[in-house]
């Protein structure tokens, strides 16, 4: 990925010349170090810097915006009702009327694709956010407690991760009745250990920082130290991880739907569309190509974003 990354929040500090006695505010040597603002303003400034320094990251953000718009405004964007069956237009090739053709039940592929973004995005967003929170909580607590408790918690996480994800999802499909919330629960169980792993490693690293000892020396409680000092300093790797796992969740959700144990039909989902398309490979290839491509592009966008975030936050790539 591009390595021309300038000033980031983690920019290494070059101590300036011995002039600490003076009271004038230091003027940063490079133009890249705008005074950092707080809250929303800081987030906005960070976003602008990200777009400027990470070209591919900007592309991925644009793609992701398209998917989000598709998901949110599906009813406005879709030319037809995704469930409406045009009985006289079964498996019809793409045309002016049906831009991406129709499926075996005469439903408009484009409309189903747009609505499919909904289930995909809802499942992925909820799963990622819930797992991020859970995994961070578990990882930070485990890393902070250390010793025996850490050992027990981590072996449990190892256990979950030792079952291949799709097999675990299949197992959980037996346990839970098929529904969107079941899919989310199952995926959360599968993804959380990965967040835990990163959060724990980061906690172990941050715990050794002097500012943690300084906080203790000030009299800060463990909880306060965790919230004020540990969490903010692990935000960068967690965001990167979230983006990459988001891509994984999109794949897993569609795989489950493809196997008929994810989003239950007739609700349109990309995986479900692929599954019905698989029966008409030669007769109606558009039934496979359209959802296959859009699924891949969505995964691509989040992988790209993850890569860009990693570069953006990598102190070694700072100039």
């Amino acid at each position: 990925m591009s390595s021309d990354v300038a000033g980031s929040p983690l920019a290494p500090v070059v101590p300036d010349q011995p002039r600490s006695g003076d009271r004038t505010p230091p003027t940063p040597s490079s133009s890249e170090a705008p005074p950092r603002r707080r809250g929303a303003a800081a987030a906005w400034a960070g976003l602008k810097r990200f777009i400027r320094t990470e070209k591919l990251g900007a592309v991925s953000l644009a793609l992701i915006t398209v998917f989000v718009v598709m998901a949110v405004f599906a009813p406005l964007l879709a030319p037809y009702d995704p469930l409406q069956q045009f009985r006289r237009n079964l498996t019809e090739a793409p045309s002016g009327t049906f831009w991406l053709g129709t499926d075996d039940l005469g439903r408009d592929v484009l409309s189903r694709l747009i609505y499919g973004a909904r289930s995909s995005m809802i499942v992925s967003v909820v799963t990622t956010v819930v797992s991020l929170v859970l995994g961070t909580l578990i990882g930070v607590t485990s890393g902070f407690l250390g010793k025996r408790k850490d050992m027990v918690i981590q072996r449990l996480m190892d256990a979950i991760q030792s079952v291949p994800p799709l097999v675990l999802l299949l197992f959980l499909a037996v346990v839970l009745t098929p529904s969107m919330s079941s899919t989310i629960i199952a995926l959360t169980i599968v993804i959380t250990p990965s967040f835990n792993r990163v959060a724990r490693a980061e906690t172990m690293r941050i715990r050794e920082e002097t500012y943690i000892e300084a906080a203790r020396a000030t009299g800060s409680s463990s909880l306060r130290t965790m919230v004020k000092h540990v969490l903010p300093n692990m935000a960068a790797p967690m965001m990167t991880m979230a983006s990459l796992l988001f891509a994984g969740v999109i794949i897993a959700e569609s795989a489950l739907s493809f196997l008929g144990i994810g989003t239950p039909p007739p609700t349109p989902s990309w995986g479900g569309m692929l599954s019905s398309g698989a029966r008409y490979v030669e007769l109606a290839p558009w039934m496979i190509i359209a959802p296959g491509l859009i699924l891949s592009v969505a995964v691509f966008a989040f992988n790209l974003l993850g890569d860009a975030l990693r570069d953006f936050f990598d102190p070694r790539l700072q100039r």
Binding site: S254, A255, G277, A278, V281, G292, S296, F300
Partner: peptide, 21 residues
Amino acid sequence: VTFLSVPNFVLGLLILTALGL
């Protein structure tokens, strides 16, 4: 990056489709 993004079952389906067509 491209191949990292195409899910394996989608790739399988696409290859099948191409060979079939």
